[in-house]
Each structure stands twice: as structure tokens, then as C-alpha cells.
Computed example of a mutant assay.
Amino acid sequence: MAALALGAVTAGSGALPQPAAAAVPGPRLGECAAGEVCLWPESRFRGERRTYELKGVSIGRCLRLPGSAGARSFANRTGRPVTVYESGECAETAEFHTHPSGSWTPEGAYRVRAFKVWER
């Protein structure tokens, strides 16, 4: 009877129990510092993280990722918009999307092979 009453209180409060398995751990904020673009080779921020500091990136210049693996997830903490490209040459004939600063993308629609940082 007590369990039934507890269920009614929980249901009435609008709080529903969250299944533990449903939560997918993401990166901690410190894993991509302010002023950085961070890219991971696998979705959900897995694999060896590659970081690029804003102070080391030329604004508006295409920066190709090394190797052929590219990135499946990424974070933009530069304070500026960042465009990610499927093309290693930043060609707009393949897929590309611009992400605002503060965005975290756990699974991109395509493998990112290059990016550009823009003025605000």
C-alpha cells in the first residue's frame, strides 16, 4: 500500500524516474576549453580528441584535418561561428554546416574533413 501511495505522489509531482541506461555520457565542459574547436573521430565524443585554439587558426581560412579519418563529433567554443565541411578543401559542393559558438554536436550528419572559423 505504501508503494502505491509513493507511486501516486511521484506521478502527481510530474517527476518520472529516468532509466540509467538512457543517459549517454558526453564530454565534460573542460574537455573543450574556451577558445577551442574540438573534434573527435567517433560519434558521442569518443576517440582521441583533436583541439585547435582560436589563437592558432587563421580566420576565414580552410583548415584540413590531418589523415583520412576526419571527425564524427565536435564542439565549438571559439566565441565565433565555425563551418564544418565534408570536403577536405572546404568546397561547398559537398555537405557543410555552420555552428554557433557554444554548440556541441555528438553526431554529425557526415564525416568532417575540414573547417573554417569566421568573424563574429
Rank of each mutant, 00 (worst) to 15 (best):
T98D: 08
A34R: 06
C90L: 14
V57H: 12
V24F: 06
V57T: 09
G108P: 04
L63P: 01
M1W: 07
F115C: 01
A91H: 00
W40I: 03
P25K: 03
E36Y: 03
A71G: 11
R113A: 10
G26N: 07
G60E: 02
A20G: 10
F115W: 05
A94Q: 13
G79S: 04
E86S: 01
R113S: 13
R80D: 05
T93Y: 12
A20C: 12
G30C: 13
A3G: 00
G30I: 11
E48Q: 14
C90K: 13
F74C: 03
A2Q: 14
V84F: 09
K116I: 05
A114F: 08
S68L: 04
A71P: 04
S58C: 11
G79A: 07
V9P: 14
R120S: 15
A5E: 09
R61E: 15
L4T: 02
E86M: 09
V82H: 01
T78R: 02
G14P: 05
L29T: 05
R80T: 00
V37R: 15
E42K: 14
G56N: 15
C32V: 09
P41I: 03
F96S: 07
R64P: 07
G35C: 05
A5D: 07
A20D: 12
R113E: 02
G70K: 06
A34T: 02
R77H: 12
K55L: 09
L65C: 08
V84S: 08
T10W: 10
R120I: 11
R61M: 13
V117F: 06
S87W: 15
R61Q: 15
S73W: 07
G88A: 14
E42L: 10
S58A: 15
T93L: 13
E95G: 12
A2D: 14
P41Q: 09
R28W: 10
E107W: 13
R80C: 10
T105S: 15
G60A: 14
A22F: 02
V9K: 10
L39P: 04
A75C: 04
L65Q: 03
L54W: 02
V112E: 09
E107K: 15
P27K: 00
C90A: 15
L6A: 05
C90V: 11
A69V: 05
V112K: 11
G88T: 08
R77S: 03
R50G: 00
M1D: 05
R113V: 12
R113W: 04
L54R: 06
T78D: 03
G12S: 04
R64F: 00
G70T: 08
L65T: 01
V24Y: 01
A23N: 04
P81M: 14
E31P: 02
V37S: 12
F96D: 08
E95S: 14
P27R: 00
N76W: 08
T83Q: 06
C62T: 13
L16T: 08
G47V: 07
V9A: 12
